[in-house]
């Protein structure tokens, strides 16, 4: 039904499509900014969050480039079926997030050493952030697939901002909300399992939705 090799090839294609847009200059600037903010606030989690959330903004690039050059038509002429396009795009976004996770770890660890001296606490925080950006992407990708880049680009910030707002609220009012105590009581492993299940379910649903949207589109 679908071929992992084809999907990997499509991820490479996306990478090559996006490459002209990734200028070393901008990347270094973003990196410097992230590091700077992390150092300034002395919060390793914030230093980690920045690369990860930036990755979600890069998510739109394949769609942007694709729309500019009518690459959806190219995919057809290159015999790439729609489901490979969708799965490949998700693969690309996952890859982006992995890279961002690595960068986040690289930035956050020194700051954690400096601040906490127990960087082991960083891991769950990083993984939670990782899970969150995956969820954000899973909310954004169907929007891109349905509307195309131009119409989607305003809308896709909504999930991102919503999640960021939720984080701020939860972190800020954690001690005031009753159910946070109950949630915390579950223990880290239960929380982790619940988190993974939620993310996987969300991703699956998102993929199916994206496939339906993409199939319905005309180029």
């Amino acid at each position: 039904m679908f071929s992992p090799r084809q999907i990997w090839r499509f991820v490479r294609l996306d990478g090559r499509t996006v490459r002209p847009y990734l200028q070393t200059r901008t990347l270094l600037l973003s990196a410097a900014m992230a590091l700077g903010i992390g150092v300034a606030t002395r919060e390793p989690v914030i230093a980690a969050a920045m690369p990860l959330f930036m990755a979600t903004t890069y998510l739109g690039y394949p769609f942007l480039a694709g729309e500019r050059s009518d690459m959806d038509a190219l995919y057809v002429t290159w015999s790439i079926p729609g489901r490979t396009v969708v799965l490949g795009r998700y693969g690309f976004s996952f890859g982006l997030n992995l890279v961002a996770l690595l960068v986040a770890a690289v930035f956050a660890t020194p700051i954690a050493w400096w601040q906490w001296a127990v960087p082991a606490e960083l891991a769950p925080a990083l993984l939670t952030l990782f899970g969150m950006v995956i969820v954000v992407n899973c909310l954004q990708l169907p929007v891109y697939f349905k509307l195309g880049y131009t119409k989607a680009k305003g809308l896709v910030y909504v999930p991102l901002l919503a999640i960021m707002a939720i984080i701020v609220l939860v972190v800020g009012f954690a001690d005031r909300l009753r159910w946070t105590a109950a949630v915390a009581a579950l223990g880290p492993w239960s929380l982790a399992i619940i988190g993974v299940v939620v993310v996987l379910a969300g991703a699956a649903g998102s993929v199916m939705l994206s496939m339906r949207f993409y199939r319905a589109r005309e180029f």
Binding site: R16, T17, R19, P20, Y21, A65, R68, S69, D70, M71, A73, L74, T77
Partner: peptide, 13 residues
Amino acid sequence: GVVMDNPYYPEGW
């Protein structure tokens, strides 16, 4: 083989 008015390739390629 396809030859279109505007190629379907990204301009940056």
